[in-house]
Amino acid sequence: MPPSSRIPPLLHPYIKLPKHDSITLTTSVLGASANWLLVRFICEALSAAPGRGVQNGTQDGLVENTETEGEGEDLAVVLVSWMREWEFWRGEARKGCGLDLVRLAKEGRFVFVDGLSKLYLPEMSGSSTHTPTTVPLPAQTILPVRTPGRIGPIPNRAQPSPQPQTEKAKDPGRFYLTSPDLKLLKDTIRTAISSLSSRKTLLILDSPDALLSTAASPTLTSFTLSSTLLALHDISSHILIHLSADTPLLSPSSPPLPLELDSQAFLVKVAHITERVLSCRVLDTGVARDVSGVLRCTVRDGGYFEGEGGGELEGKEMLYLVKGDGSVKVFERGAGEGH
């Protein structure tokens, strides 16, 4: 099955990256995650390359065909995730789109920047085991904070001096963020992009708003985050940013809490910057067996002068169903399974 056929036709115009440089915003709520959508973006970006990378391979029983559409540009993908680890994304991409991220990483078309495991998770003894180590650790490493029953001083999560050079793992195409510092983030992504073979890149930022809640730093505000976003846009032609749009994060209580204000300001600011907003939410009428959620796509004309705009795409609302095998069905209202 060619990768592009994994993308539902109704969804395709909204996932297809425009010719000019763009920033796209994806939002999700707790009950309706947008991970499937992110995977579709990766799939679309990587399959757009003409006759490159994706071959008739049969590794792990995956069948991949050469995409011969032609006009697509040579795109590479950088995925930065603060919410999910590498294993999760690898599995999702394989299940949802039949992409082998390990191989793509070896070919220099995909890079994963891990903003989770070295930043928040306790140190793992090995990549396969999921039990935190209890053996005494060397003084320099981070102590396992989340080990249950551990009593003692809580170690500082941010390392005393964030190293400008990222720690590179033995497997290619993987970088780690060791501090919530934004400068380090910029440097890491710059290094990651320079390690890629393609001229154009799609940078996917998965939940950078987690930084607002976890990094209690006075310099990390919605403004510094959004200006980091624009700075990253300078080095990456396309950006897809995924934020959560749950009510508790966005509607201020009284008196308003700093986190509510920052999340709302950041989300709205990004929505003002972007031309395209794709938001997932749960079905308004309650839970249904054959509908996972509602996807709303809104598009606006983004440029300052004629010819810079984002085409004639209309806003639309669709329903989607993520099946157990990872495939996704997108349909209009009233055109579900039973019809």
Binding site: V29, A245, L250, A271, R281, T298
Partner: peptide, 18 residues
């Protein structure tokens, strides 16, 4: 507008009329 219609709605469908 944002969160006016339902949780998770960022932008109204009728926004930015062409």
């Amino acid at each position: 507008g944002i969160l006016q219609e339902a949780e998770g709605v960022v932008q109204s469908l009728a926004a930015n009329d062409r």
